[in-house]
């Protein structure tokens, strides 16, 4: 059975149940909402290209917590400089996870039009990297890949995850801040 984005995020959360997650707009936000039953995560409703940067800020403020950046592939391209920052700041608690289907889903499924190479670029930057294609591989790498790292998850089932990616921003911020500062 081929993986869809919600299956992937569910496997991620099972492997890191206490993590603070930041999701990029579109597929990642919708999948995280579905897989976490609207858990108190930092869902991006817009600001394409800044999710990994925001996750860096979260990781540096909360070095005691595991932080996950759930990123679309188009998102990662738009904020590609943050891969360099991830390597430069090198937070020991941050894992970037790129959901790679080769397409801009929320705008209608247009092809990326550029090489969908993420783990290879991250490896060149000195980050720990892995590629997963099954839920078991996702869970194993989320549990074991050293940080800072980048996990590339390749999938083909491009069914839309479901929940709206248009979130109520102040509510998201308030719930996330409460979760991030709880302990």
């Amino acid at each position: 059975m081929s993986l869809n984005p919600t299956d992937i995020v569910r496997a991620i959360l099972e492997a890191a149940p206490d993590a603070l997650a930041v999701s990029s707009l579109g597929t990642a936000t919708s999948a995280l909402r579905a897989a976490s039953d609207d858990g108190p995560h930092l869902y991006m409703g817009g600001s394409m290209g800044t999710a990994l940067a925001a996750a860096l800020g979260v990781a540096e403020k909360r070095p005691d917590r595991t932080v996950l950046a759930l990123l679309g592939d188009g998102e990662t391209l738009m904020g590609a400089g943050s891969l360099w920052s991830l390597a430069g700041l090198a937070p020991r608690n941050l894992l970037a996870i790129v959901l790679v289907d080769g397409h801009y889903s929320i705008t209608g499924g247009q092809a990326l039009g550029v090489p969908d190479v993420f783990a290879g670029v991250a490896a060149a930057l000195g980050l720990h990297t892995a590629t997963a294609r099954t839920a078991d591989e996702v869970a194993e790498h989320v549990a074991n890949l050293p940080r800072p790292g980048l996990l590339e998850v390749r999938y083909e089932d491009r069914a839309w995850p479901g929940p709206s990616p248009f979130v109520d921003a102040p509510v998201v911020r308030w719930r996330f801040e409460a979760a991030a500062t709880a302990r």
Binding site: T50, A53, L56, V58, S82, W84, G88, A180
Partner: peptide, 26 residues
């Protein structure tokens, strides 16, 4: 005070937004 050199100003605003959302003051 840590001085974080990032690659683009937009990234600085994204970083600061995350730091603020996690309860800090950047």
């Amino acid at each position: 005070v840590p001085l974080r050199t990032l690659t683009r100003e937009e990234e600085c605003f994204g970083y600061a937004a995350g730091y603020r959302a996690a309860g800090g003051l950047p």
